[in-house]
Design a binder for these strands. Structure first.
Lengths: 119, 119
DNA sequence: CTTCTCGTACGATAGACATCGTAGTACGGC
DNA sequence: GCCGTACTACGATGTCTATCGTACGAGAAG
């Protein structure tokens, strides 16, 4: 029946429940440079960022695809706010399932960014 | 001239140097269930195991492929010992580059194994 | 209502990858 | 030298995935 919209928005998107999140899917989602970069920025921000906030070197269609991979793997949560779609890392769920994993990956990414050319 | 074989063996295999190891490649290598399982066993053992020690549900060709992906991403080191090929996790290099990452992933895999059916 | 922005959906495409089977090479033992 | 074991190399195949372009839908602003 789906009564009452959760957060007050209209259309909402399918997310895996916490128990459905699979480590292999998370690692796969993070193994793409573009997606890893997105997650780094989202984690650094801590809050929610719109898709259009990111200036990725691919078309909008491709961007949508990458965000979907991140959402379906359980790494991020996506919510519509008016015309924009806001994205946030599912830190609670990830830390609950895999303590320390996200932080290790983010730290590793930061280290590698410094080690290579960088940013 | 290549004088003196390092460990006493003859043919040796191409490995990335420590500085060439890329986080994305490591995550990608670990995102396959079979490969993750192999790495878990190798890490649990701590030493070296032959390819034939693993009883994977795929043919030998496919096994060879997976071990190569692990080697080329820098996750494991492979050495010939007579007719057998021994495999070991490159713990020093991984811990040096990405402190805590490998342990987080292994812990996450162990947790998930318990959480699901398990083993 | 029209228009603008933001993002989706769908179809196409090219490349990557997991898988197999067969044939071959290296090494150790007989 | 010959055979068996361990693993590789190569070619084929089906699936997945990253990418694009175009056309569409939902909401805000005029």
């Amino acid at each position: 029946m789906t009564i009452a919209a959760p957060t007050g928005s209209s259309r909402d998107l399918p997310h895996p429940q916490r128990a459905e999140i699979r480590l292999e899917a998370v690692l796969h989602a993070l193994s793409d440079p573009l997606r890893l970069q997105v997650v780094r920025e989202l984690a650094a921000d801590g809050g929610e960022l719109s898709c259009s906030h990111f200036d990725l070197p691919v078309t909008k269609s491709t961007t949508t695809h990458h965000f979907r991979v991140l959402r379906e793997s359980g790494v991020i949560r996506q919510v519509y706010r008016g015309t924009a779609k806001m994205n946030g890392v599912r830190r609670d769920d990830l830390d609950g399932l895999f303590p320390g994993l996200l932080d290790s990956v983010l730290a590793a990414a930061a280290r590698q960014a410094v080690r290579l050319g960088s940013r």
